[in-house]
Amino acid sequence: MTDDIAYWFSYLTNGKHLTWYASFQFTIFAALMGGALAVVFGLLGATLKNSRFLPLRLIGTFYSSIVRGVPDVLFFLFFPLAFEQGVEWLVASQICSPEAIAAQTAAWPPCKEANWFLGTTEYLILASVSLGLVYGAFATNVIHGALRSVPNGQLEAARAFGMSPGQVLWRIQIRQMWVYALPGLSNVWMLIVKATSLLSLLQIADIVLWADRLGAPNFLPAVGLVHEDWRWRYYLVLFVFYILVTWLSERAFEAIMRRAGKGILSEARV
């Protein structure tokens, strides 16, 4: 019995498994960073949508409807690739000599010097930004609605005190809107958490990729424990992990809602 426990303990703490546990940091980082950026882009989008200047309003509406109109995975893949190409194009226009361009045989980049190698860190940041952009479009709608739910009397009172439009926006409207935005933002957060499972599509060695590697059947005793195809067990662990994260987030949002809803009429706390 104790032998068994020791055996499984040593299996679950071998180097590969420790790397797997360490790779949770990528998922958590992407979720937190993506969530923060989604709120930033959401605020930006909602401000644009509320703008009195028509072109800005169009940009805001266009952003929130087009990004939500295509699958998240499409934009999630497209943005990092397009950004990388854009930077390479910019660099190429500065440093590429005509000879280097003539010597280049591949379709991209224009010359070898302009090649930008992206490692895990760069891809992780780009992935977080693209999560923020995609779900910022959802947050734009949520915040846009919440901004309009702020009681008009409060804004009028602020204007009567002589606040400028910017002050009314930042000191009253945005501070008061969180209670109305929280239920929607909690939905957006759940979507972001679930979208972090896509990180492996951008060559990040995240939890999904490691689950695949660890569970793959092994027939060589030299490599480690000989076992058949155990991938489904590892995916089951991830399945449970995501359910737990969802559960925890729900509890956390409930607590925040209770706190934020203090002193506000109960209809805001749905």
């Binding site: 759940m190 896509l198 999904v208 991938r231 489904w232 995501y242 969802t246």
Partner: peptide
Amino acid sequence: IYAFRGSPLFIQFFMFYSLALS
């Protein structure tokens, strides 16, 4: 309902496919 709404579809695909494989 809670389990399938609370986990990513991507993981569900991998899980069921690898289960079917094994």
